[in-house]
Design a protein around this nucleic acid. Structure first.
Lengths: 201, 201
DNA sequence: AATTTTAATTAGTGAGTGATAACTAATTAC
DNA sequence: GTAATTAGTTATCACTCACTAATTAAAATT
């Protein structure tokens, strides 16, 4: 047969991309090397020409997702830190909608049991995101947009991140039956404005 | 060998209990009938004496968890609705700590793909919980503890539930490395008090 | 005590899984 | 234009999975 002969680099990227796609559609544990090969249009053993073992595929998937998450994490500068925060939240939600596999992968055994290093990497990515939220809230505090308080900024940041992920979880449980970005924008906007305190009211 | 001969009823309950345990330790998809049999102390085919197929085991697991969740859902009556709400949240978090498999199972393919009916049942349970939160917040509104607003009660209820689940997700991602109940109590307490508005301040 | 019921066993099936070996053909390098 | 490289193939492996058939032995019933 020999359908199409791509460079190893391109093929590797293609396999990773399709693995992410299939993880969203079938669930991470249903992504067999056979399913992967069928979707790519190769024979099953061809997969192993590009990745020595299957865990290596998950490693690449995890790294790719983590890299994408980090790339989108940089906030656009603006002089209204709360508006920047809300835009960041919206962008994060949009990304989850585009890559619905993310929540599923974050809970998969491939990550939790089989790949401790990757789990820790995601933990670091998430913590970084929380810190970024926190920094924006601190800035808002210094501008008088958010009331002061010992752990106020850190706690509100944790609440925002938890709300995002909890909402993504509900979105998944409800078979992706609502607009995650719109609903999240609305709810988390209320959370931020509500918890900001009586300062701006 | 014939270690111990239990009644079918007892054995069934034991298998379900151990399945929940193993799902938390190994991940739901690693709970093979062999692993189950080893943990119970039976031969692998003996499992099939008690459950006709494996999906039936997951069905029983799901029903057991759903039943437990529903049992604990009833709020203790009190005249301070926000205090009742916070107690309910704490109880929910404590339950997740006791049964860490819950978030993992809620995301498992066994539930999402293989058992659409069960997924919908959990969706209903979750919606019911949200409605219960909402009712308590409405009560708080009528007592002047929470400010009024068109969708205020529903939105705050959604935020509380999302925060719980998002925090559980982080707890899982951070290898259960912090006290979920204590942290959640603190954060969600702030969420509720913060979003309650300037009424009680 | 004899009989029935049933919770177990051992032994085995087919389907699917990740992975390897041996070979083929397209691309690249000289 | 030939040789080396390498992205593919087919065939097959060892193993695990859920599940079944035949049989055994412990309780429960009589």
């Amino acid at each position: 047969m020999a359908r199409e002969r791509k460079s190893a680099e391109d093929r590797k990227a293609e396999i990773v991309q399709i693995a992410i796609q299939l993880a969203g559609e079938l669930g991470p544990d249903r992504v067999t090397t056979q399913a992967l090969a069928d979707a790519v249009g190769l024979s099953q053993p061809a997969i192993f020409r590009h990745f020595p073992t299957k865990p290596d595929i998950w490693l690449a998937v995890g790294q790719t997702i983590a890299r994408r998450m980090e790339m989108q994490a940089a906030p656009e500068p603006g002089n209204d830190p709360l508006a920047v925060l809300e835009a960041l939240v919206a962008r994060y939600l949009g990304q989850i909608m585009q890559t619905p596999a993310i929540p599923a992968i974050l809970f998969s055994r491939e990550l939790h049991v089989e790949n401790e290093a990757l789990r820790r990497h995601f933990e670091t990515v998430m913590t970084g995101r929380r810190k970024m939220f926190e920094a924006l809230i601190r800035e808002a505090q210094s501008q008088g947009q958010v009331e002061e308080g010992s752990d106020k900024a850190a706690d509100l940041a944790a609440l925002v991140l938890a709300s995002i992920q909890g909402l993504a979880m509900r979105w998944s449980l409800e078979a992706r039956g609502f607009d995650l970005e719109a609903e999240g924008r609305r709810l988390i906007g209320q959370l931020i404005r509500g918890c900001a305190g009586p300062v701006v009211r």
